[in-house]
Simulated scan of single mutants.
Amino acid sequence: MTSNEPSFVKAERRGTVMLLVIDRPAARNALNPAILTKIAEELTAADRDPAIHAVALTGGPKNFSAGADIDTLSGHSPASYLASPTRRAFESIYGTSKPIVAGVAGFCLGGGCELALSCDLIVAGDNAVFGQPEINLGIIPGAGGTQLWRERTGAGPQVEAALLGHLVDAWTARRMGLADEIVPAERIIEATLDKALAIASKAPLASRTAKAALRGAGAMNLHAALAHEVGLMAGLLGTEDAQEGTRAFLEKRRPRYQGR
């Protein structure tokens, strides 16, 4: 991305939360490599910044993202797609260690839906529409859309999304577990920030470790996942934050976490 090329992503610190807003309204926030790379760069910076405890990612009250720019898909060979900036960006986004809350209003389709599913919680505006319509273009989701739905909804909705390209509204998404909360669309930025700030108020090491435990469980059987959780918990017990949390509880005061 050159210095003269707009990133279409606004980044702003709100206390201990990094707020990222996709801002490409003329294209319904369609994703291109520059947008995804910018999001990945901001998330990497947030991961490295001890003052940032959580991230809020939204497209505002009209659209989260209508999907990927179709122009960016045409002309790819199998090898070039696997090595593309888009693939690297999605891998970086999913690998972010700090909790991310997605605020989804309007269209959340294709790559946009996969971007939301790469986050940890989804706050949906009452006008939200989720879907993976790639099958209608003769392709399939390529950034988690055939896998990440299962983590939230189970196999049935995932199969319909991938094979039929069905779209679901906010209320259906909430019933199936795709969305965690529904708010009026005009409040989507505020509500997403509120959720992220609530997470950021907790012990930061514990929040990151909880995310690691949740993400790791999907790739393991139950026995291995339980052992993984135990190991992560044992590691936390040696931190100053864990000692502060128990001490504050016993002293009936608010804990003062330092991320150590």
Rank of each mutant, 00 (worst) to 15 (best):
E244A: 09
E181A: 08
S201V: 02
A83C: 11
T146A: 12
V123D: 06
E5L: 01
Y81A: 11
S74L: 12
V55S: 05
V159L: 09
A213R: 09
T2P: 00
G144S: 13
R152M: 07
R260S: 07
A210L: 10
L250A: 15
V9N: 06
Y257A: 04
Q243H: 09
R256G: 15
D69S: 14
S118W: 10
D180R: 08
G154E: 09
M1C: 07
R253A: 07
A155Y: 08
A143Q: 14
W171I: 09
A11F: 02
T86E: 15
R208V: 13
P33I: 03
K98S: 04
G67W: 06
E186H: 06
A46V: 15
L57W: 00
G106P: 10
P99V: 08
T37W: 02
R208I: 14
I39A: 12
T58G: 07
G142N: 11
R247T: 14
P33E: 12
L57Y: 01
P184Q: 06
A89T: 13
R13I: 05
K38V: 02
P33T: 12
R48A: 14
L117E: 01
C108Q: 04
R247L: 05
F8N: 05
I189P: 01
T209A: 06
L163R: 13
E5M: 01
H223W: 03
A56T: 13
D23I: 02
A179S: 13
R24G: 05
G259K: 08
D47H: 10
S7N: 08
G60W: 04
A234W: 04
A40Y: 09
T37M: 05
T246M: 05
K98V: 11
A56S: 04
P99I: 09
E240K: 12
P61E: 02
L236W: 10
G125V: 03
A217E: 03
I39L: 11
I182P: 14
Y94A: 12
K98P: 07
L121G: 04
A210N: 15
M1W: 01
A185C: 08
Q147C: 03
G238S: 10
D69Q: 10
A26H: 07
K195P: 05
N221Y: 08
A68I: 15
K38Q: 15
E181Q: 12
L57F: 02
A128H: 14
S92Q: 15
A27V: 11
E229G: 11
A30H: 00
P157Y: 06
L232S: 04
S97A: 13
F64W: 03
A102T: 14
F8A: 01
D241A: 08
L109K: 01
A185S: 14
P157R: 09
S7Y: 11
A79I: 08
I189A: 07
A227S: 12
E229W: 00
P157V: 02
L205G: 13
E240G: 10
